[in-house]
């Protein structure tokens, strides 16, 4: 099955830092300064047979634009869909056997390990 892991967490505003603010620093400093924070997770998942199909970190929600279309009119507004303390920080699309595997993948993700929340959503299969 395919699942999207949606990362929710509090954004770091002061230094304009993105997901790196909520991601572990250890991975970046221990061995390889260039290694992104999610690499250990990626290796762990690959070893378990969990496929990582796509993933990205997002620019902070201050860069978001909300679009609504009403008939021929397009309504554009600055800011995210919902002004909440926790915003979407990024996402990963994984492929694994079942929800238990997806829950495990989410629990090991750097965002979850650093106080963020991961929403696990099954992707609708197109047949």
């Amino acid at each position: 099955m395919k699942y999207m892991l949606l990362m929710h967490g509090v954004e770091e505003h002061e230094d304009g830092d993105d997901l790196a603010g909520t991601a572990p620093e250890a991975g970046a400093t221990a061995h390889d300064e260039e290694e992104p924070c999610w690499m250990p997770w990626y290796r762990e998942m690959t070893a378990r047979g969990v496929g990582l199909l796509k993933g990205a970190m997002l620019q902070p929600s201050t860069t978001a634009t909300t679009v609504r279309a009403s008939g021929s009119e397009v309504l554009v507004a600055d800011g995210p869909f919902a002004e909440t303390k926790e915003q979407i920080l990024g996402f990963d699309v994984i492929e694994c056997a079942d929800l238990d595997e997806a829950i495990h993948a989410a629990s090991r993700h750097p965002v979850a390990q650093n106080g963020g929340v991961v929403e696990v959503r099954p992707i609708l299969a197109m047949s």
């Binding site: 099955m1 699942y3 056997a97 079942d98 929800l99 238990d100 997806a102 696990v120 099954p122």
Partner: peptide, 14 residues
């Protein structure tokens, strides 16, 4: 069905 909750007894670690 839709979220893929497995039909099984969980493995030892769970």
């Amino acid at each position: 069905r839709d979220a893929g909750i497995p039909y099984r007894v969980p493995p030892a670690h769970l």
